[in-house]
Simulated assay, not measured.
Amino acid sequence: MKFDNAEDIVQWTPLWQGERFPNGRPKVPADVLRRLGRITLEEAWGPLWSRGYQSQFEGDFKIIHPGKVIVGRAVTAVMVPKRPDLHDTLLRYGHEQEGRRGFFNQWVIDTLEEDDVVVVDMFDKIYQGTYVGGNLSTAISTRTKRGGAVIWGGIRDNQQVMEIENINVYFRGSDPTAIADVTMVGMNVPTRIGRAVCLPGDVVLGTPSGVIFIPAHLAELTAIHAEKSQVRDVFGFVRLRDQTYTTAQIDSAWSTAMWQDFLNWFQSDEAAAPYRHLTWNDELEEARKLEAAGPSSDVRL
């Protein structure tokens, strides 16, 4: 076996066609991460759920900075209760064959890059299941710049961790004990966090409501879907305030005339400036087809 095996990671993520890290982990572009950091949990959830990705969210966490949103690329780990023969074999293998130092949790944190988020299944262990404390959280802060950790288990040194403002940590509980009697059986492998599944390189979006894991190959599509919804809402609020349209018109399929009104606003209004990388040809063409086909249903595009 190998920890953090590039061949395995590539096999688990075949739909990702973009750049990868040397270990095979999908490298979603920083620009896409920034865009996803401006969307809501529900805006990310919708396009994933509709495409069959219905095990991507978990909300049953405590949060070090409850009002802070984090977004980053997942670095995953799976821990199990200690079994001496397995534990000794894997710890020795990591030290002697892969040149790793310290305990299992330190191995993972030593690999972190900018914009990474540690995602760890600690099998919900809190007593002696404290994956990070003040020192390792500081290391996460230094390496990731704005990332953090999602831990299905415990942490310690909460007061110290709370003072680290550039990251966020989602965890199940706190305990003063150090990590003990656990063994890492996988690093950058498929990982279960509560009722959610995370693959290495998934985009981790942590919000006040919980965490959603966005598959790397759907990250930009999710950003586009959310941004289009956001800017259409901005336009809708404007037109509702000036009573140009009714709520029924705004919430139903738009006519070509409404789309043209929107596009004129989109190109000229300062409120639309952050969204001008978006294109609307498909939506306008769909409106034309609906009009050609006759009366449309009241279903929003």
Rank of each mutant, 00 (worst) to 15 (best):
G67R: 13
V203D: 11
F213W: 08
H87C: 07
D181A: 14
Y245I: 07
S296Y: 09
Q260P: 07
I214R: 02
T130V: 06
R73Q: 12
W254R: 00
I179Q: 05
Q17S: 15
F262S: 00
Q17P: 06
A293W: 05
A257S: 10
N168L: 06
I39L: 12
T130N: 08
V132T: 05
Q11D: 12
T256P: 07
Y127S: 11
K125I: 14
P190S: 11
G133H: 00
V120K: 00
D251E: 14
R73L: 14
R143F: 04
Q128N: 14
Q56G: 09
L33F: 06
S50T: 15
W152I: 12
V118C: 04
R192Y: 11
P29D: 02
R35P: 01
E19V: 15
L86K: 08
V185M: 05
A74E: 03
K62P: 03
A149P: 03
S252M: 03
T177L: 10
G133N: 01
Y245W: 13
T144Q: 06
I39S: 08
D298T: 15
D181Y: 13
I155S: 07
E220R: 13
A196P: 05
N188F: 00
Q249Y: 04
F171H: 12
R156N: 06
Q17F: 09
N264K: 15
W16K: 06
I70A: 04
T177H: 09
S209N: 11
V75T: 08
D60F: 12
G37E: 00
I63D: 03
D115P: 09
H87E: 07
G99W: 03
T177V: 10
A272Q: 01
D261N: 14
L199D: 10
N264E: 10
R38D: 02
S174H: 12
T246G: 07
E285A: 15
P22W: 11
I109C: 02
T89Y: 11
V69H: 09
A180N: 13
I155V: 15
T256C: 11
K2M: 15
N158E: 10
S268M: 14
V69Q: 09
E220K: 14
E163I: 15
G173Y: 05
L15D: 12
I155A: 07
G210C: 06
W107K: 04
R25A: 13
S296R: 15
D298I: 13
I109W: 00
E58N: 14
S209P: 05
D4F: 03
A223D: 01
L90P: 02
V299T: 12
T279K: 11
S297L: 12
D124E: 09
V211P: 02
S50I: 15
E163N: 15
P29M: 01
I212V: 08
A273Q: 10
